[in-house]
Design a binder for these strands. Structure first.
Lengths: 108, 108
DNA sequence: TCTATACGTTAGTATTGACTTACGGTTAGT
DNA sequence: ACTAACCGTAAGTCAATACTAACGTATAGA
C-alpha cells in the first residue's frame, strides 16, 4: 500500500499490533512464527498483518503455502518525515524556553 | 510525563487527537484556540490534551486563566528512536531485495 | 462582591474495533 | 486422490474509549 503516516499511526496505536510489528524487526517471518508465543489467535494475527500492510508498514512474499512478512521501510520513512514536522528549529527553540521555565518554577 | 514511545503511539492512534496535536505544530496555543474549528467539544479537547501530556507529547504553561499548550519534543524524540529500531542496515538490504522481487513479478 | 472567562473533571452513553470461532481456499506430500 | 499444513475471511461478541452534558474551580476585571 502507498505509505501514509496517518494510517501508520492508526495501525501502531494498538499494543498487540505493535507486538506483531516488532516481531518483523527480527527479519522475515511466517504468520505461524509471528503468532507463536502471542496470547492471541492466529487469525487475529492475520488481521493485524492486514492492517499493517494497508498502512504501508509490512510487505508479504508468498512462498509455497506460507506467507512471509517483513517490515516495509517506506511506511517507517513516512512516519519519520511526519515526525519531522514537529521537530523544526522553532520548536526546539521553544523547548529550551519551556525547560528554563520549568527550572525557574522548581526553584521559586 | 516521562517520554515513552509506546504511550506516544497509543496517543497518536486517534485521528482527532492527532488533529489536536497538529495544532500545536503552529506554536503555543490555548485550549480555546485549539478547540476552535474542531467538530468536538472543548472538554473533549481537554481530555485529548491530557492524554498527549501523559504520553510526553505536550507540555502546559499556566498564564492567568489560560493554559498554553505546546509540543513536547522529548516525546517526539522518543518516537524517533523507536522508529530507528526498524531502520537499520539489515532491513534496508531486505527492502531492496523485496523491490527486486516486485519488479520481477510485475514483468513475468 | 459580582460577573465573565477559561479550564479541568466526572458520569453516563454510544460507537469503534479487537478478538474468537468457524469456514473455505491453496499448496506440498504420500 | 487424499491428507495435512498454512493462511485469509466472515460473522458475531464484548470490552475499550471517544464523546457530550453538567458541574466545580480559579483568575481577571468592574
Amino acid at each position: 500500500m502507498t505509505p501514509n503516516a496517518e494510517r501508520a499511526l492508526d495501525a501502531l496505536g494498538d499494543p498487540t499490533r505493535r507486538l506483531v510489528f516488532k516481531r518483523l524487526r527480527g527479519g522475515t517471518r511466517s504468520v505461524r512464527e509471528i503468532a507463536e508465543g502471542l496470547d492471541v489467535s492466529r487469525p487475529a494475527v492475520s488481521q493485524h498483518l492486514k492492517v499493517l500492510r494497508t498502512a504501508g508498514l509490512a510487505v508479504v512474499r508468498i512462498e509455497g503455502t506460507r506467507r512471509l512478512y517483513a517490515v516495509d521501510t517506506r511506511g517507517v520513512e513516512a512516519l519519520r518525515s511526519w515526525l519531522d514536522g514537529f521537530w523544526d528549529k522553532a520548536l526546539v527553540a521553544f523547548k529550551t524556553a519551556v525547560e528554563r521555565e520549568a527550572v525557574k518554577r522548581r526553584k521559586p
